[in-house]
Design a protein around this nucleic acid. Structure first.
Lengths: 132, 132, 132, 132
DNA sequence: GTGGTCTAGACCACT
DNA sequence: GTGGTCTAGACCACA
């Protein structure tokens, strides 16, 4: 057991985002960011379930989706492991594309609010530097 | 009927955000931004529903919420109109606050993707200027 | 309700293949074969569950996977629909590729059994014509 | 040690078929086909496990099943050998029956993909001749 | 030990 | 009406 689930995942019970989605998204970002490296063993379904006080099926659903997405691989009887990264997955170009939809939405909202570009960019720059 | 629903609203069917929420949020921004001025007639529920291929009840639900919020007023027999005193002011400060949550989310995702600020700001600036 | 689940799906309870997998595979082939055309409404989760005497969650899991794979799309509150086919999906070339792994396995087994090609092809031709 | 495990067995780790099952089925076919003759020494559990990067217990389980089925016999201190009177006959009729389930599945899939018989048979014939 | 499958049932959100 | 989420619990297969 290389990694403690209590350190890996944190779920927001109050959020409207489904728990399994929170787990999936966190795992994806941890892998994209390199905190989880290819070959690393994931904490077991039961361990995560116990640590976060969840039903094992909820965790299992998250792991299943991550497997379908190619982020994790299952070794039968041995648990889940971080998959070897498809080539180019971590390039800047591919990561910026993951951010594009959110930025497009922000641009649309800014236009609808008839906000000046400078005003928007000033706030966004400030937010990028914050909490860092 | 001054305004075409097809030009007013754009909904993302693939989004996880409920359609009625998308309509409500867009209407609020359009009013805050001044594209919808007090006294303007809103397109009818039926027209919006047809133009965007939505269930009329979905549009009706959005209009109902907007009426509850004081953004629209219902004139019996004549349809929905932008309210005379829409909630909140239209100052830049108040409008930028409507945009803040989206920008915060974008900033969070950018950090998690470990993207350089310049790269993000370059793309965002480009998107702001586009489709204008 | 355009399509009867009782006509669409048939599950083999005795099989070791999970029920949800049988549903996924059948749906994929029905879409690839054109029996299910883009835009067609799928029978509802509850209807399939009742028709096949399954738990709705089992059907839901199958639909969920098909959605992740891009075979189905969900219209909220309206059910599941066959997704618009990615271009070229229905060509003979692409369909035969879906069959290739199974044929490769059959060829491997035939070799290991040291069976004569004619013997194998005769049986296979008979099976192709059967149950048609 | 007459036979190299690396040449005997090929396992598909990605397959849903359990590894031990793949080993059992392949051994049965190789015996039925005559590539493994009565009295031949099987590669040791340890050797197979190392060559295929498997857990020795997995290989041992497969050998145990093959022994139960009468395909292999254990000579204490000397390892596993192909049994003198392996189960079933080696007639063409019996061997083709071992292949039938796989061919039936292929025929079913071909029908569901609405593939022309000639197209399917052409590919299958090519695959039979290949890698021979 | 590992994950997977399925059921039963409750509750929620969207259209 | 639609699908989604989550829980509780039982049972299975694999290594």
């Amino acid at each position: 057991m290389a990694i403690h689930s209590s350190k890996l995942f944190s779920i927001a019970t109050g959020s409207s985002e489904p728990i399994y989605r929170q787990l999936v998204d966190q795992a994806q970002r941890l892998v994209a960011g390199g905190q989880l490296a290819p070959g690393d063993a994931m904490p077991s379904v039961r361990e995560v379930a116990q640590a976060l006080a969840l039903n094992p099926m909820t965790v299992s659903k998250a792991y299943g989706i991550l497997e379908l997405e190619g982020v994790l691989t299952r070794k039968r009887g041995m648990g889940m492991f971080v998959a070897d990264a498809p080539k180019g997955t971590h390039s800047v170009a591919s990561r910026i594309e993951l951010l594009r939809p959110t930025l497009e939405r922000a641009a649309l909202e800014a236009r609808q609010l008839e906000l000046d570009h400078d005003t928007v960019l000033t706030l966004f720059t400030k937010l990028l530097k914050e909490k860092q």
